[in-house]
């Protein structure tokens, strides 16, 4: 499976990628990260390949899934795949108002659901205090 994660510096893209990698523990993992020179607000792009691959990078149109943490990057996301997970305006607004740091946790939970990652396994990877937002994402609570 080939997954591209897109977001901006400060949104926790790299942490999200570590969580995904850990959920596929035991399988072959290859990934590659690009973070440009801007710290906050700069583009962060992670390619993740799970399975029998040789190169850690993913070509345009070749991703199975794009995980989008920042909707300003939608155009870039479509270059990789038509299959994109992103946050609705409602979800964004809710998270940013209550706890912007939970953006990646919420997304991880959404993704866990889509990728059929076992609930117990996924929640065991995160900090206990983050469980509230994890559950919200897993159960699609914010509509």
């Amino acid at each position: 499976m080939k997954i591209v994660l897109l977001g901006r510096g400060g949104e926790g893209v790299l942490y999200l990628s570590r969580l995904i990698i850990k959920s596929f523990d035991g399988q072959n993992i290859l990934s590659s990260e690009i973070h440009g020179m801007a710290k906050k607000g700069g583009l962060v792009e992670v390619h993740l390949k799970i399975g029998d691959y040789k190169s850690p990078t993913i070509g345009y149109k070749k991703a199975d899934l794009v995980v989008l943490l920042n909707n300003s990057l939608k155009k870039l996301a479509y270059l990789y795949s038509q299959n994109i997970i992103f946050l609705s305006e409602k979800e964004q607004e809710y998270i940013l108002k209550s706890n912007p740091k939970m953006l990646n946790i919420y997304m991880f939970a959404k993704l866990a659901k889509v990728l059929n990652i076992d609930y117990q396994k996924a929640i065991s990877l995160i900090n206990k205090n983050d469980a509230e937002f994890f559950n919200k994402g897993f159960n699609n609570d914010i509509q």
């Binding site: 990698i21 072959n28 993992i29 290859l30 990934s31 590659s32 990260e33 690009i34 973070h35 850690p56 990078t57």
Partner: peptide
């Protein structure tokens, strides 16, 4: 290179 240095693998 960047892709190797900032890549990950088990």
């Amino acid at each position: 290179t960047t892709r190797i240095s900032h890549g990950r693998q088990n």
